[in-house]
């Protein structure tokens, strides 16, 4: 660019500005259009499966797969949303899952934020080594220790009870990690001056850190809730009795039982996704902040 500028005749001092401005504007408008086109295309690809899920759940079973494809349900069949409660144990599955998700989120938030304070603000020998053990397990997939964990849970008489899922999900390293990252952004002077005023460590945690960390606590609670709600492998390994099934486990047994009931299967899927979708749309800010906090520093 500098080369072309130099080769221009002298009166062109103002000219390049005049000439390039509309050119650049046109080019940036062109890029803008390309950008929008890419966005629309990507959004369509991302949303197509969800669109299909909802539309198929409102069709009669024989209308799900047709040639050519019908992209709108005609007629709209709401019956599926009534039938599914009779043909499956949806109520039990949703009840179990809700109970587990609430309990796990509560325990994770309480124990996670508590431990994170210890790691972030109290100096004691062995702290860093201990934290390394926490972080290290992030590189160890659950799948690689599910066998010995199952043996242990069975010895503790926890397998085939809902407690096994609580034990599995509530004490993860993730919560400790997220909360520690957040506590470290709170200025040390704040707790230091409280310490001078005679507040105990527990007092500082309760009176200063907890109120300040409300957004991070919300992030952790929501992320844990969704993870527990969506977990399939934990319940698959630990919950054998039909009355203990969670929504994911139930949904999968349902599709193997009624594998040709395409519309009803989609109805079940919509119902299993709906609570999480609502929670996500309401608390989107917290999801995104929580993920950015844990992701930024590694």
């Amino acid at each position: 660019m500098t080369a072309t500028d130099l080769s221009l005749p002298t009166p062109a001092v103002a000219a390049p500005g005049n000439r390039s401005a509309p050119g650049r504007q046109a080019r940036s408008r062109g890029w803008r259009l390309v950008g929008y086109a890419a966005l629309v295309l990507a959004a369509a690809g991302l949303l197509l499966p969800f669109y299909w899920m909802v539309v198929a759940s409102l069709k009669t079973n024989s209308d799900v797969f047709t040639i050519p494809i019908t992209w709108l349900p005609d007629p709209v069949v709401w019956r599926n949303y009534l039938d599914i409660w009779q043909r499956s144990d949806m109520t039990t599955w949703l009840g179990n899952t809700l109970l587990l998700s609430v309990l796990v989120s509560f325990l994770q938030v309480v124990t996670g934020s508590f431990a994170a304070y210890g790691f972030a603000r109290v100096r004691f020998p062995g702290r860093n080594a201990l934290f390394l053990a926490y972080v290290g397990t992030i590189a160890v997939p659950w799948q690689s220790y599910m066998i010995p964990q199952f043996i242990l849970m069975s010895k503790l008489q926890l397998s085939n009870t809902l407690w096994s899922i609580v034990a599995l999900q509530a004490f993860g390293a993730f919560g400790v990690f997220l909360m520690k990252q957040f506590y470290e952004t709170i200025p040390e002077e704040l707790s230091e001056s409280a310490r001078v005023d005679g507040l105990s460590e527990f007092g500082i945690y309760r009176r200063i850190m907890l109120p300040l960390s409300r957004p991070a606590l919300a992030s952790l609670a929501l992320l844990t809730f969704v993870t527990t709600w969506n977990d399939y492998l934990g319940p698959l390994v630990y919950l054998r009795s039909p009355e203990l099934r969670t929504i994911q486990l139930g949904l999968n047994t349902f599709i193997s039982q009624y594998n040709a009931e395409y519309a009803l299967i989609m109805t079940g899927s919509v119902l299993s996704v709906l609570p999480v979708a609502v929670i996500f749309l309401l608390g989107q800010r917290y999801f995104i902040e929580g993920i950015a906090t844990t992701g930024l520093k590694g």
Binding site: T111, F114, G118, G172
Partner: peptide
Amino acid sequence: NTVAGWSFILPNFVGFAVFTLLPVVVL
């Protein structure tokens, strides 16, 4: 500080040790 630190970490650590660390060792 050691007592304070451990009492903060302990509730989470017990669960973490029993259901994550121990299984990894037993593996």
